[in-house]
Design a protein around this nucleic acid. Structure first.
Length: 599
RNA sequence: UGCCCGAUGGUGUAAUGGUAGCACAAACGACUCUGACUCGUUUUGUCUAGGUUCGACUCCUAGUCGGGCAGCCA
């Protein structure tokens, strides 16, 4: 499968973060630009993460740099190995052929090495060479030992203390946005006592929540994150990566800045909600008086799309309550769902470029995403004939048993389009939407007494509508004008409508899954009870009739079923003899939308 | 009634003191053996009020509106 790389031909995007990096590069502030993508392995990656991946890896590839994949796994109660594996797969898929040469992984099992930088104690963990064998992502949990050592340093410098306040008391002492907090009665413990207590926390002497390690900053700070934030909490829990080695776990703010430092990250790019954490990020690094250059944090607005939900909590809810069929349900905005649905990684990258990077927290029209998908799929998809909801046509002037071979174009977008044979026979199927006994105005398709072209074949004329006892249409009897075939004298004859069709006697059946938006309203996340906006018609399964060449379709193939949209074999369920296709997206449709009774 | 951040057509995004541009969407038209693609045309915008300046989307002041922050989550 070949995927056009839009960014190769297109100039690199520009935004305020790329500007900052460009300035740092120009000033030669770093030997190499190193960014990171640090998901918590507590769920599957979605389009929102994709924006961050494209930014962080984009920064790396545009500056001959590197982007580390790091599991931000400091909370053992929420994280699972299943998520680690899914995230790793999704990241590889999204950057494949684009930024895989910038992907920073570490040697399996490696942890930061104790070194000396500028005459001071230091720890550092560099990425393995690109393409090296036996690698894995970085894990924040691989840094637990040096993080602990750094905590000891903070205590020794008088910048951290062990607090005995309960979680509830801690909350009370914190005050409110417009009300200063109060100092904990344990705030002025001696360094020796803090050291002793913290070491005993680590050795498992105290139960969960009994004590915590806090930064000693300012309980009256207007920024709540500076009111002696917690650095460590006690959790007697098994961790997916470190097992039972630890019973104290660092919190995000403490672990993140130091993990960035340990890996030599130069630009730590995160989303807007961490803006108020930045002073703490800087405070921790400064107080430690670290010997190497410090990373800096920059924030951008995360992606929001209409008709889409990105909240991990809600996505988890949809999966757990079986409102969808797993994390890779093609209706979900997860990368695994989109991949299964047939969305190319390049389309997601194209979307990321289209939405840009700013600090404005808006909502992007899902049409921008859909446009990006079609842009990638149009040149990359083989055209095929398929009928989703068949009605039978009998071409009364073609004898039963006769096969007329027609040549169909594989992709008109190709510079030198190739063709394949398709069989025209006495009985064919057409789409039920393509016939109307009582046509609306401007209806170009088949109607009583009307003519229409069967694409790649010939023009047919409707003579008779045959109904069964119940009044339902049994078949349409038509005359084929074989002189309008390609190469025949009347091939240039024009009719308003051209429709797709499949031979009724030379075709294969397939299960085809048709998807609509999962939600019926533009902003389903706006209300707490988002489930009431779930679209009951988000999945429609039909048994379709396909041209025979599709019998050998395998996952990875991309097709455009003419006039219907883009389709891929389902990677999980499709097999020879039982074909299953997913519709990735419909073609843009200027007719159905405005047709009377159109959907 | 604390602190931080933001505001440009319907939506997203450029313009970094000098002609408000691009994309999506929408509308109309051309082309068409896909009502697709492609092409053409059109509609719609600098939150408000002051100020600085020859000149302000841009700088300053005040306001308005929106978002974030009070997890031992990330």
């Amino acid at each position: 499968m070949t995927e056009a790389d839009p960014s190769a031909a297109t100039p690199a995007p520009s935004d305020f973060i790329r500007d900052i990096v460009a300035q740092d590069v120009a000033a030669q502030r770093h030997a190499k630009i190193i960014t990171r993508f640090p998901p918590e392995p507590n769920g599957y990656l979605h389009l929102g993460h994709a924006k961050s991946i494209c930014l962080n890896f984009g920064l790396a590839r545009e500056n001959a740099g590197q982007c580390n994949l790091r599991m931000d796994d400091t909370n053992p109660t929420k994280e699972e190995i299943e998520y680690v594996e899914a995230i790793t797969t999704d990241v590889h898929w999204l950057i494949d052929g684009w930024a895989d040469h910038c992907l920073g992984l570490k040697t399996k099992g490696a942890t930061p090495a104790r070194t000396e930088s500028n005459g001071k104690l230091d720890y550092h963990l560099a990425a393995a060479p690109v393409g090296a064998a036996n690698t894995e992502p970085f894990f924040a949990s691989d840094n637990f030992a040096p993080l602990y050592e750094f905590a000891l340093v903070l205590i020794q410098k008088g910048h951290a203390y062990v607090d005995d306040l309960s979680p509830k008391e801690t909350e009370e002492y914190r005050g409110a946005p417009d009300k200063p907090g109060r100092n904990s009665p344990f705030r002025e413990r001696s360094v020796a006592e803090n050291l002793d207590l913290f070491q005993r926390m680590r050795s498992g002497e105290f139960p969960d929540g009994a004590r915590s390690l806090r930064a000693k900053i300012d309980m009256a700070a207007p920024n709540l994150w500076l009111r002696d934030p917690l650095l460590y909490r006690i959790r007697h829990a098994s961790h997916h990566h470190t097992g039972d080695q630890w019973c104290i776990y660092p919190l995000y703010d403490y672990a993140h800045c130091l993990s960035d430092y340990l890996e030599g990250i130069t630009h730590s790019v995160c989303t807007l909600e961490f803006e108020v954490h930045r002073p703490l990020y800087d405070w921790i690094l400064e107080k430690l008086q670290l010997p190497r250059p410090l990373p800096h944090q920059y924030e951008f607005a995360k992606l929001n799309l209409t008709y889409t939900i990105f909240s991990k909590r809600r996505l988890l809810q949809l999966v757990q309550e079986n409102l969808v069929n797993g994390w890779d349900d093609p209706r979900l905005p997860t990368l695994s769902g989109l991949r299964r649905r047939g969305v190319p990684a390049s389309a997601i990258r194209r979307l990321a470029t289209a939405v840009g990077v700013t600090k404005y927290d808006g909502v992007t029209d899902v049409a921008v995403y859909e446009h990006a998908v079609r842009e990638e799929l149009n040149p990359a998809s083989l055209r095929r004939l398929a009928v989703l909801r068949p009605i039978k046509i009998v071409l009364t002037n073609i004898p039963a048993g006769e096969t007329i071979e027609c040549l169909a174009t594989n992709n008109p977008q190709d510079e030198v389009p190739t063709t394949r044979p398709v069989a025209l026979t006495r009985e064919v199927f057409i789409e039920s939407d393509d016939f109307a006994e009582v046509p609306p105005p401007k209806y170009f398709r088949l109607k009583p007494g009307g003519e229409v072209r069967l694409k790649y074949a010939c023009i047919i004329k409707l003579d008779e509508i045959v109904k069964d006892a119940s009044g339902a249409i049994a078949e349409l009897r038509c005359t084929a004008d074989l002189t309008t075939r390609t190469g025949q004298p009347n091939s240039d004859k024009k009719v308003k409508g051209t429709i797709h069709w499949v031979s009724a006697t030379q075709c294969v059946d397939a299960e085809v899954r048709l998807y609509e938006r999962l939600f019926t309203v533009a902003e389903p996340g706006a209300e707490e009870d988002f489930k009431k906006f779930i679209n009951p018609h988000s999945l429609d399964v039909v048994t379709a009739k396909l041209e025979t060449s599709l019998a050998s379709a395998t996952p990875g193939d991309r097709f455009q079923f003419e006039r219907l949209g883009y389709f891929v074999p389902d990677a999980k369920d499709s097999r020879p003899g039982h074909l299953v296709f997913n519709r990735t997206i419909t073609l843009k449709d200027a007719w159905t939308a405005k047709a009377p009774g159109g959907k």
